[in-house]
Amino acid sequence: MLSIKNLQAQVEDKQILKGLNLTINPGEVHAIMGPNGSGKSSLASVLAGRDAYEVTGGEVEFYGKDLLELSPEDRAREGLFLAFQYPVEIPGVSNINFLKTAMNEIRAYKGLEPLDAKSFLKLSKEKQQLVEFDAKLVNRCLNEGFSGGEKKRNEIFQLAMLEPRLAILDETDSGLDIDALRIVANGVNALRSKDNAFVVITHYQRLLDYIVPDFVHVLFDGKIIKSGTKVLALELEEKGYDWLKESVHAPIV
């Protein structure tokens, strides 16, 4: 569904992504790990179309379309979802109205009628249960005054509502307490199907105990320097990144 070839991007004249390759098929879960500042969130941002990033090379294909040609909202409407590392607060905008707008925009793009109020509420109830999201938060303003963990859980609630084809979770686990981590992971697992895929950005094996990845990649200095199975994550947990960094800097003979 997604194929990234030799992707290069910069922000404020600083090269961040330096030739990144990644292919994702429906039904797969990919974990991306890597040291702070290696470019994980940048990759997510570039895929989602954040303005500050300039793509300087490479290509990205999403379901046969040139993803980089699409506006951020059309990427979302095509089924790309980003659970933000730092979700923003939008004061005064009701969470549920925002979601309804989002959902109906996406439906309109697909040529579907807007969901009537009743079906929308029914769906919202179902998904709240699925990801155990507090009904009170649903009716509050979008992330306004939410705790760090509540914001992350709101991302997952939105994910459940919008049912994207590809979801990128950027450190959704950080800031979650132990119970919340399990709940969020269960939610994600419940949403997994043979038709959708997940990219899980994380620093910790803990999350991958719950959401078991098919592939694990290590991002370093704007490139994927190693890919493997879930075993790689365990290895990283044990050894850190240094052994890999060395192999990058060593001249390839």
């Binding site: 179309g49 909202e73 979302a76 979802f81 979700p87 905008v93 925002f98 925009e105």
Partner: peptide, 19 residues
């Protein structure tokens, strides 16, 4: 953030302003 949820610039600004 709103763009990423499928909402275009104009509607996004309208939402934010209404909030």
């Amino acid at each position: 953030y709103l763009n990423q949820r499928g909402i275009d610039d104009e509607k996004a600004v309208a939402l934010i302003v209404n909030g």
